[in-house]
Amino acid sequence: MRRFKKITILEWKLLTREFITIFFALIFPVMMLLLFGSIYGNEPNEFMNGYGTVDVSTPGYINMIVAVTGLMSLPLTLAQYRERKILKRFMASPIHPMDILLSQIIVNVMLTLIGLIMLIIVGIIVFDLKFYGNFFEALLAFIIIMLSIFSIGLFITAISKNTRMANAISYIIYFPMLFLSGATMPLELMPQTIRIISKALPMTYGVELFKGIWLGDHLIDFSLELLLLGGITLLFGGLSIKLFKWV
């Protein structure tokens, strides 16, 4: 356990040295919030069913952070560790490379949480961001969303032969999810075609779920979303376990 803690602290230090990851997980979401918040404000708005634009957008931005850590940072780091034979080197040592994989998951969860907290603090200070839901339901929804996105991330590493392939797959999945799932811009603002496309993206359901809980609905109202996100976790998590290779 002492070993695992040390490894995790080291992996955290290394993660904080990755400027691009830090930028997209911590700074970019806050910039989006400030940009769109300053354009639309957070006054109750008929177009947003009587909620403020910032109140509706923030749960989406939180999904965006999960996408950065789960679909970019985690799979690309692991693919790189494998390509550079770092995982193999650890296989020939008293620790198992599984320790590295778990610590990578933990540090990316930590980064997601920090991003979420920063976003909420800026939202409260600048736009008087309001949370209408139940804290525990929101926490549960957040965990379910993270599990599903992280299992897709692990699946990307599992099926990629090298870092370049992992990069390509990550980008192909990440960008549509970012812009077409309602994470960056509410789907209400999007044309009908995009709304249809969005139905095929797992993150759309994460955004719907988290937005709903944030605005005061309950988990019980989102059986479809929960079922889909749970299914994604089981499917991609299972496939990752089956297909993942250390070397």
Partner: peptide, 23 residues
């Protein structure tokens, strides 16, 4: 091992400490 490299931006000290705690 052949062609092993290390984590990006890891320092000599950190790498040595990582291996020190293993044994």
């Amino acid at each position: 091992l052949q062609e092993t490299s290390y984590q990006d931006k890891i320092k000599v000290k950190e790498l040595c400490e990582l291996f020190t705690i293993m044994y």
